[in-house]
Computed example of a mutant assay.
Amino acid sequence: MSFTSTVKKRLLRAQVTSIEQLLALNERELRSRSNIGPKTVSDINKALAKAGLSLAADPYEPYECARDAKVVRDADLRSYFLCDQCRDDYAERAFGERSPIWVSGERIDGYCGHCNELQVVRLSQWFLCGTCDRVVRSLGRGRASVKFVESSWAEISPPGLSLRETDPVELRPRGRRSDVDRVAQADFMADGVSGEAVLGVELKSGRRALPGGGVGEPMPRFQLDTTDCDDITAAAEALNVPVFLIHAQIIGRAHAPTERYVGVGLWFARPWDMLQHREAVKQRSLEARDAAYFKTKMFRPFAEFPAYVKDELGADLESMRQVGFPDLY
């Protein structure tokens, strides 16, 4: 074996005296020996590879996150109830053609964790890190919030405005979405009777209510990442229309062993009301990013939106034409 003299000396000092002894060790065990550091391990791996050999596999090595395509320490086996179509979409579109580690043979009548439809579902498992797991589990709630907004809009029929979704909720490979795509679109556009874009809608959803509706105790203040505020501003400027913030309260209801998501409250905020209701901008707890905190008074029940469109929207559109989109925080 063509090890350098330095590698040979370090292996001897680490009491590794034969190639058989070396090959019985994995990288973690080798690095635990004195005098064996990352560069020495790298040199050993290169020499072994040239000879068609390798160190032993580590039974405790971290798993690779299917969405990140990286080995990460917090990647664990995560389980989701999915219909066949959504499971295939996850594997092909978001997990780099990685099939589930395991799929249950038992078929259950329940709610799919992605499309939130009552379907025949099966338990499917992938290795995912904690961040990607949270993203995956948020998708069913996000899809439910989109349908809730669409049905609520149809019920109240804001005068002269038709709604269309422009940024669908879908699972993407991590890091694949460009900054241009991220900031230039609102979640919905509302078009006038002649087809021109009149306003945009940025949708946020959560478990908590706001004052004047919903289910349960209302949240004391509304939190929005400053990057989300910047995205709203960038979309408004790129589209040359105001972008409104809508909050949907989405709660889970058991349909054991699955869960369905239901919309129970909806509110809107004028962008012109946000800055005057801002309380603070500070770093979020346990996260290295800033958030703006707003008084919940800036929101109105969505049922009041038709009256706003009829009586106030024209003046707000003129204001934007005159002085531009307002600062949000």
Rank of each mutant, 00 (worst) to 15 (best):
S2V: 00
L11G: 08
L11I: 04
L12V: 10
L23V: 04
L23I: 08
N26R: 04
E29R: 13
R33D: 00
S34V: 04
I36G: 10
K46F: 02
L53H: 12
Y60C: 01
P62E: 11
A66S: 13
A66I: 01
L82E: 09
L82W: 11
C83E: 02
D88A: 14
V103E: 12
V103C: 10
C115K: 03
L118M: 09
Q119N: 13
S124G: 05
S138R: 14
G140D: 07
G142P: 00
R143V: 11
S145C: 02
V146F: 07
K147T: 03
F148Y: 15
S151A: 13
S151D: 03
S152K: 08
W153A: 01
P158D: 09
S162I: 06
T166H: 07
P168I: 06
R172D: 02
S178W: 03
D179C: 00
V180H: 11
G195V: 07
S205F: 05
A209P: 04
L210R: 09
G214C: 04
E217W: 00
F222M: 06
T227N: 14
D231G: 14
L239Y: 01
V241Q: 05
P242T: 04
H247G: 03
A248L: 02
Q249R: 06
I250G: 11
G252F: 06
G252V: 03
H255Q: 09
P257V: 07
E259Q: 13
E259F: 02
Y261M: 11
Y261S: 08
V262G: 03
G263T: 10
G265M: 02
G265A: 03
A269M: 04
Q276R: 15
Q276H: 11
E279R: 15
D290Q: 15
A292H: 06
F294Y: 15
K297Q: 13
M298A: 10
P306E: 09
V309P: 01
D316P: 00
Y329S: 08
